[in-house]
Design a binder for these strands. Structure first.
Length: 892
DNA sequence: CATCCGACACAGA
DNA sequence: TCTGTGTCGGATG
């Protein structure tokens, strides 16, 4: 059962009259326990409770009925129970039917709520079903504030220095911002003496910033030279530290300041940069400096919560568990300390280094924890040594030079902050300047470069973790160079490799890197790689030769602090060599354990549903709608239709009703010009049609698609006039909302044309509607078809042609037809409500809901002799039938 | 020739 | 500016 099903089941209990003797078993049922388990519990054989009327299921929950208004005391009794101590339930529940008092004994978390809100608080009870709540990390508000101030400064400087906007000066601007931030940071954390840089700027920069540029240039120049070599610079520069490390080498320049820009510079100096998060600050500079190019490579910085979605399950959680286990034994703690120095993290698309910085910081934190504990356990305090985690353990590849430079700087700042924390705890800190060489950041094309050269494979005790967020690009968005890179990586290994997302190249290279090595990988990806056609195209190749998915985050919305967020749904797929270790699935803030994680990220066997051009279960032929590719000129609003008809009434026979998804779902009226080749000459004689044909021809002639240009020769026709009904048809919208309980489908007469936003069954039996509008079908489509973000995306080849049905008898087909007509009739009784109105999840009419329930019960009984209990059971059965059918076909 | 997709696109609160 | 929900036509095998 998934969390929603558990919530529903708990809600049923909450809404029913309370029965103290029955509650424990009902709760066991609602939290996904097998019938046999509940039967044994009921018989008393496995009920371990030592409380009156209590039910205790080993390791799951301990329930006891409470006297009226006495839930707190009953909860206390549950807490104190000897049996609670031995059977280790994850939930304690006391209720009198009015109030509930519940507790997680491990964390001490408690819940008090009215009984009828049991379903609302389902998340609290999920641990009883083996699902844990998952805590996501939060964003740092200081970063948000700093990026706002920097953006203001940047804009002001751009107003004063319009020439810096040009592409050839962009690098100078980026460099200036990096150096400035380094100085602001350094004077706040003690690398420079306090306020050294800003003091110089505001002492010598003039009242209104008129000398600010010269002052800053002098300061930067000084930092690039040893202290004795600054005789040509102003005397005040003598005390600046020699920074080096590459940051101040090369051209040194600064923009001019006006009073406004100078004021914003002061604002930036006033910020407390000590608290800045180096995790993402490089990305912020980039997004500030290049607001037009945020969607380009490297501009999509990953927020810390999302980075932790990767690093936590990839290796930090395991590390924590190992440290906990070693907690009381010095030798075991030392082993973990050694382990820290042998962990390497590799981000093959590192941008400005966010993942590496966070990983570094997390390792240093754990090291401090270990050393502190060792200090407590061992008498000799000299055992507290210097950090053994070095920046050299961090490897990255980044294609743009500025981002690569920023990554090095960010790692340096992270190192400084970790050292400062170390000094807080142990009272020691090393010299910080001149900058030492940082992480192994290589500026190169990650898809062309040999990864083993950048991050040598692990030897002996070493562990390598590949993490990151490579770019996502679908086949319509890639440049010719990117397609070449993709061919270079994937051609010869995957069929149809150009069909899948660019990010797949990184997944493929990561899989090859880690196979048979002490290494794991987890990359943030677009969710489309785990849906529809991508599943069969990519994953069989990835998951062969000993790899498996060790953890996965199901679809989550992309979010960061950038002003305009990218709109995309992401997943994280954790790859590893096959082990017996637990497998974890994350969905929203919920975590559960899975027996297997397949490429759809479902807890099910490794199934790859393959597209088929005809139904493998002998269902009628479903076709793609008619695709205009007309630049909008063959499609008509009702108003446009009337305009044409008023100019040329003879055009009437050439205009038909047209329906796409929006028309089916929202009852919108739309028309199209529909002219056969034989009619073309007559139709072109009518001026309003001729004008539109000319516009279509022009649009098509300038298309960059090979299939479209020739269609300029027949502008009266759709590019793909696929098919249409003789008598009647069923239209199925391809894209539709994920919130409706059933898929939209409409029955139409032959005078309506389907656009390519619909799939169609022409002149097919009406029982097809009974199937497509069923719960079984929407569950199947949701599992095996692609999605538009999280919307349903219906597919004939992957959804309909693969949909398993039993062999129906003629009598059963009659029953399904009758059920389909009942649904249609019920809908018509609510005329003029649209499908969107009728299937509003919060406002579906009772009679329609009833018609669908009867339809589902009827259909499902034909599969297993009774209705299914829940969607998990539905999907299990469908997968089983599909696998059996594929096996039998393959055997022939 | 017929799809499958979109670091989306766009309307309406 | 955010939320809800489906257009449209290129690129692909």
């Amino acid at each position: 059962m998934n969390p929603t099903e558990i919530a529903d089941a708990l809600d049923v209990i909450a809404k029913a009259p309370f029965d103290a003797a029955e509650f424990g078993y009902a709760f066991a049922d609602a939290t996904d326990n097998a019938r046999a388990t509940i039967a044994k519990l009921r018989s008393g054989a496995t009920n371990k409770s030592d409380l009156n009327g209590g039910v205790l299921l080993n390791r799951k929950f301990h329930y006891a009925p409470a006297l009226p208004s006495d839930t707190a005391q009953t909860l206390a009794a549950l807490r104190a129970s000897k049996k609670t101590a031995s059977a280790k339930p994850v939930i304690l529940i006391a209720t009198d039917g009015q109030m509930i008092a519940a507790e997680h004994p491990k964390s001490g978390d408690t819940l008090h709520c009215p009984f009828n809100e049991l379903g609302t608080h389902f998340a609290f009870f999920l641990p009883a079903a083996g699902k844990d709540r998952y805590q996501a990390a939060e964003e740092n508000p200081v970063d948000v504030k700093a990026s706002g101030k920097l953006a203001k400064l940047y804009d002001a400087m751009m107003r004063v220095n319009p020439d810096w906007k040009q592409a050839e000066r962009r690098h100078d601007m980026n460099l200036f911002m990096t150096r400035l931030i380094f100085c602001l940071f350094s004077e706040d954390v003690g690398i420079f003496t306090q306020h050294q840089f800003s003091h110089a700027v505001f002492s010598y920069g003039g009242n209104k910033g008129e000398h600010a540029r010269d002052t800053i240039v002098s300061a930067f120049a000084a930092m690039n030279r040893p202290k004795g070599e600054r005789s040509d610079l102003p005397a005040w520069t003598a005390n600046f530290e020699y920074v080096n490390g590459g940051l101040f080498t090369g051209t040194i320049d600064a923009p001019d300041f006006d009073p406004v820009a100078f004021r914003y510079l002061r604002d930036c100096c006033d910020l407390d940069w000590k608290l800045i998060n180096p995790d993402i600050f490089g990305s912020m500079i980039q997004s500030i400096a290049d607001p037009d190019a945020r969607s380009e490579l490297g501009m999509h910085y990953t927020s810390v919560p999302n980075i932790m979605k990767v690093l936590g399950p990839l290796f930090l959680d395991d590390l924590d568990a190992a440290i906990d286990k070693a907690w009381d034994k010095a030798s075991a703690l030392r082993a973990q300390l050694t382990r820290l120095s042998k962990i390497r993290v590799f981000d093959p698309a590192c941008g400005s280094g966010n993942f590496l910085v966070v990983a570094y910081r997390e390792l240093r934190e754990r090291e401090i924890r270990l050393l502190k504990r060792l200090g407590e356990l061992e008498a000799n305090p000299q055992n507290v040594m210097w950090s053994s985690v070095s920046l050299g353990q961090f490897h990255g590849i980044e294609i743009t030079d500025f981002a690569a430079e920023t990554a090095k700087l960010a790692l340096f700042i992270a190192e400084y902050q970790a050292n400062a924390r170390f000094a807080d705890v142990f009272g020691r800190m090393p010299a910080l300047l001149p900058l030492r060489d940082g992480g192994h950041i290589v500026c190169d094309n990650s898809l062309r470069r040999d990864w083993e050269e950048v991050c040598p494979p692990p030897v002996a005790e070493e562990e390598v973790y590949i993490a990151g967020n490579p770019p996502f690009l679908g086949d319509n968005a890639r440049s010719p160079e990117q397609n070449n890179d993709m061919d270079f990586v994937l051609a010869g290994h995957l069929d149809a490799h150009r069909r899948i997302d660019f990010v797949s190249c990184w997944i493929f290279k990561a899989a090859n890197y880690l196979r048979n090595r002490n290494a794991k990988s987890a990359l943030v990806s677009t969710n489309s790689i785990c849906q529809g056609q991508s599943v069969g195209a990519l994953w069989p190749e990835i998951l062969k030769n000993g790899l498996e998915i060790g953890f996965a985050h199901r679809s989550f919305k992309w979010r960061n602090n950038a002003a305009s967020n990218a709109t995309v749904m992401c997943v994280v797929v954790g790859l590893r060599n096959i082990t017996k270790d637990r497998k974890r699935v994350f969905e929203g803030d919920l975590e559960s354990e899975a027996a297997n994680i397949n490429a759809y990220l479902l807890d099910a066997s490794d199934i790859f549903v393959e597209a088929s051009s005809r139904s493998i279960f002998n269902l009628p032929y479903m076709e793609y709608g008619n695709k205009p590719t007309d630049g909008g000129h063959l499609l008509l609003t009702p108003t446009e239709r009337l305009e044409i008809l008023s100019r040329s009434p003879e055009a009437a026979p050439y205009i038909k009703r047209l329906m796409g998804s929006d028309e089916v779902i929202n009852g919108i009226e739309r028309y199209c010009i529909w002219v056969t080749d034989e009619e073309a000459t007559n139709a072109s004689a009518l001026p309003p049609l001729k004008e539109r044909f000319d516009a279509v021809a022009k649009f098509r002639a300038s298309s960059k698609a090979a299939q479209t240009r020739p269609a300029a020769a027949y502008p009266h026709r759709f590019r793909q006039a696929q098919n249409w009904a003789r008598e009647q048809a069923l239209f199925i919208p391809i894209h539709s909302s994920e919130n409706r309980p059933f898929l939209p489908i409409e029955w139409v007469k032959s005078d309506v044309i389907a656009s390519n936003a619909n799939l169609a069954l022409y002149d097919s039996p009406i029982w097809c509607l009974s199937i497509i509008a069923s719960r079984l079908h929407i569950v199947w489509i949701g599992a095996v078809c692609g999605k538009l973000e999280t919307r349903y995306r219906y597919s004939n080849t992957m959804g309909w042609n693969t949909f398993p049905v039993p062999k129906f008898t003629p009598d059963q087909l009659d029953q399904l037809s009758a059920s389909a007509r009942r649904i249609l009739k019920t809908r018509y009784q609510h005329y003029p409500k649209t499908i969107a109105d009728l299937y509003d999840p919060d406002d579906m009419p009772d009679d329609l809901r009833q018609a669908h329930r009867e339809n589902d019960d009827l259909l499902e009984t034909m599969y297993i002799g009774r209705p299914f209990r829940n969607d998990t059971e539905r999907l299990e059965k469908l997968f089983k039938l599909y696998a059996a059918k594929v096996a039998s076909k393959g055997g022939k």
